[in-house]
Design a protein around this nucleic acid. Structure first.
Lengths: 352, 352
DNA sequence: CCTATTAAATGGAACGTTCCAATAAATCAA
DNA sequence: TTGATTTATTGGAACGTTCCATTTAATAGG
């Protein structure tokens, strides 16, 4: 029912016996209108079944209250956690963030970005897809739309970044592995076109050098940043003449894939091959065996990113500082016991 | 650089030496303009760094190309899979769907819906939050916005629904458990205010009755529809005098929680207590033990929902048919061997 | 009671697009 | 050449808001 054509402030005005301007003022909660008038108008708004047309409003106001979140892999629970953190702070600011998925596809990302710009977003929080070209965010900058990178960054961009301390996280993880007695280490998953990859691999390498692992005992296998990538990495690693005995994975998804591949070969993750992940998604704790991983406080980073965005919007400035979040290694079971104290055989083996 | 104020079609017109109307026509890909003119205009568009203002356009056109997807729990990987299916079909229709999370909170859902309406969405695909009041979608209907429910529905609403055959899925699962020799069964998780819950529980109950399980041997424990809920359900179940030996869980997340709780008590999911899930998320296959679950072709349902939405938008009709997706039980390891023949290991084929 | 001040309400122009009706230019039929 | 037809292009009004400059009403000061 309710009139075919949608109601406008004029309809409200007529219904309430005031002018359209008065209605507009009420809509904006202006203190200039007499309380009784406001009540009358608000009643009319209900009666005619009015829905505010933000598009029309933005035409004059020039800045919307829509914030977009562009994510490279919705399937990775990590990003859901990030989103949850962001939503928490946006909600209390009365903003509903819209999420769009690029599925790690730069072309799709281009479309998504374009669509969001046309929609007139006030700001964008982005985890760029792999292979994003440097110019992809030029338009955004030109249009003066505030952008914040979360988790990932682009090589030589001036856009502020919210990310964990990747270098340190990887260092800690590698040091842990080495302390456990491992001497041939691998780094699994990710591709060198990601800055994050460089950082994590860098930390890994530094730990190896500092702690006396020679370069030819470290193996680096690139791959997809998901479970499938992990499977592939382990397979190629085990074809080596002297395969590694432990691996730091680019992220938890890769780690899960590695553990899966081990199981397929009837190897026990931990005792037979140590694996540590990165991100510490909630699943990590619940896997069998529980995954040792670098915790990055995902939701916290989401909140931080949202705050930076809010500030960027309010102060109308383009520049904000990067924020590097603290990390810590959560040791669980996926690295098994120390290699040196390894007298006791483990279930699968057969002996005894 | 590029002029502080954003470029409009007038700027393009001036640059290209044509009228604004011509520019508009080019923008819409009209065949009425001379090719050379089109080229000239397109160049100007590039030169001035133009970004289309969809809000302004919608003011006249009255129908946008934005489709919203409102989801009750972004954290559940199930919904990510659903979203992926939808995106596949929307992408080929040149539409970018926006996802918003309600976190199972009706109040938040209200805000999200309001925001999307104000944005002028062309349609909404919704998995309603638990405890949604019947009137929550009234406004949408009044405004004539096409809505499709995915996975969940509301009690007495006329809105089309895309969902799996919950009754049958639950029946199959319960029958499987009974065939394995279980005599005291439980249904874990979910709450009776969800229609889906009624359907699944209904199928479960029907199987029990039909296959000779007496009503006092079936235990129903309500709970959250996530991992935490599963933990809680198992705990209360095991305090019973004669606890069940198997459970059908409302969904996979609950099932994972149950398996976790079993592990905590040093019980082995499968041999010690059989558990089957619902939805068959990708993780189900990779858990230890791999989870037996009711597969619902999630991505397929997402595609279907998207198609229905597209049709609804194009035909401007309000009414569309429901779609009930086929289900099938994927048997893995989480139900252990048959209770009766419990000595023999489970080699698949056996006789050559 | 008149004027100055404050409080409330209002009309009109603008925002950036689309679409219709109208014009201008090119082509054709006779 | 003229008029009819087709092909390209164009100006103006409209869409639903906001905001500024005014007007009108109410209140206070003398």
């Amino acid at each position: 029912m309710a009139s075919r054509a949608k109601a406008t402030i004029f309809d409200i005005a007529r219904e309430a016996g005031v002018s359209k301007s008065t209605v507009s003022l009420v809509l904006q909660g202006s203190g200039l209108i007499r309380p009784e008038t406001a009540v009358k108008v608000r009643k009319a708004i209900e009666d005619v079944g009015y829905v505010y047309n933000r598009g029309a409003a933005n035409l004059r106001k020039a800045h919307s209250n829509v914030i977009g979140m562009v994510i490279n892999d919705l399937t990775n629970p990590f990003f859901a956690e990030l989103a949850v953190g962001m939503e928490r702070v946006f909600q209390s600011a009365g903003i509903v963030p819209f999420i769009a998925n690029t599925a790690e596809n730069p072309v799709r990302q281009e479309e998504v970005l374009k669509s969001l710009m046309e929609q007139g977003v006030a700001g964008l929080i982005v985890s760029p897809a792999r292979g994003t070209t440097p110019g992809a965010f030029r338009r955004l900058e030109l249009a003066g739309v505030p952008v914040v990178f979360a988790m990932r960054r682009l090589p030589e961009s001036r856009i502020p970044v919210i990310a964990p301390d990747n270098h340190r996280g990887a260092y800690l993880a590698a040091a842990h592995l080495i302390a456990k007695g491992h001497r041939r280490l691998a780094f699994f998953g990710g591709t060198s076109d990601l800055v994050v990859y460089q950082e994590r691999l860098g930390g890994f390498r530094e730990a190896c050098e500092t702690l006396g692992i020679s370069a030819r005992d470290v193996l680096v296998v690139e791959g997809e940043t998901n479970r499938r990538g992990g499977l592939a990495c382990l397979d190629t690693a085990l074809t080596m003449a002297e395969p590694p005995t432990a691996a730091l994975c680019f992220n938890d998804a890769v780690a899960f894939g590695v553990m899966l591949a081990l199981r397929k070969r009837r190897l026990e993750p931990g005792p037979d091959f140590a694996v540590v992940g990165f991100d510490d998604v909630v699943e990590a704790e619940h896997y069998m065996p529980a995954l040792t991983s670098v915790a990055v406080d995902t939701a916290g980073l989401g909140e931080r990113a949202a705050h930076v965005m809010l500030k960027l919007i309010q102060s109308r400035t383009t520049r904000a500082e990067d924020h590097i979040g603290a990390v810590n290694l959560v040791v669980r079971e996926s690295c098994g016991p120390d290699l040196r104290t390894r007298n006791r055989p483990t279930g699968t083996g057969g002996a005894a």
